[in-house]
């Protein structure tokens, strides 16, 4: 089963492996990212930090068989790089029925983006994208690590409006 889908520009890092993997009791991390899948250095790096008993695979967003992941007996954490990638994954079969929560981890500052939480900055089109994902049935939340408070979409929109 897919325990959580997370959007994080940093892909696999400490918050994911030290925070979420033990919290979700996940045994497998699926990184669905075209750029990382194309880089041997990135693929080697992703597996470097895995705790014993945890696997990881890196593949392009379009190549992931979401149905098989959802049917798997393992608890799986899915990591995507961007809101756009999440929309592509949704089109490819990563549906709310297969994983209800869409978590926002780290999206860094850039000129078009406004601050939402200490680790999440969003642009206008990204907020639009999140609205579409929520309309499709995902519960969207911004939360870096499990112990943080979750910020829901209504609050994300409010903060974006203020920012």
């Amino acid at each position: 089963m897919i325990a959580l889908a997370r959007i994080d520009e940093r892909l696999v890092h400490g918050q994911v492996l030290v925070g979420w993997v033990p919290h979700l009791e996940a045994r497998r991390v699926v990184v669905a990212d075209d750029e990382a899948a194309a880089s041997p250095l990135a693929r080697a790096a992703m597996t470097l930090a895995l705790p014993p008993g945890t696997e990881a695979d890196v593949s392009p967003v379009g190549d992931v068989d979401w149905g098989a992941l959802a049917a798997s007996p393992q608890r799986i954490l899915v990591v995507l790089r961007s809101v756009a990638a999440a929309e592509r994954a949704l089109a490819g079969g990563l549906t709310p029925a297969r994983t209800p929560v869409l978590n926002l981890g780290n999206l860094h500052h850039s000129a078009e983006r406004r601050p939402i939480t200490p680790s999440v900055f969003l642009s206008g089109p990204e907020v639009e994208g999140l609205r579409r994902l929520a309309a499709a049935g995902f519960r969207v939340e911004a939360r870096a690590v499990p112990l943080d408070d979750a910020v829901d979409l209504a609050e994300i929109e409010r903060r974006w409006g203020e920012g």
Partner: peptide, 8 residues
């Protein structure tokens, strides 16, 4: 109490 990136 550990600091992981932006998580304080």
């Amino acid at each position: 109490a550990m600091n992981m990136g932006a998580a304080l």
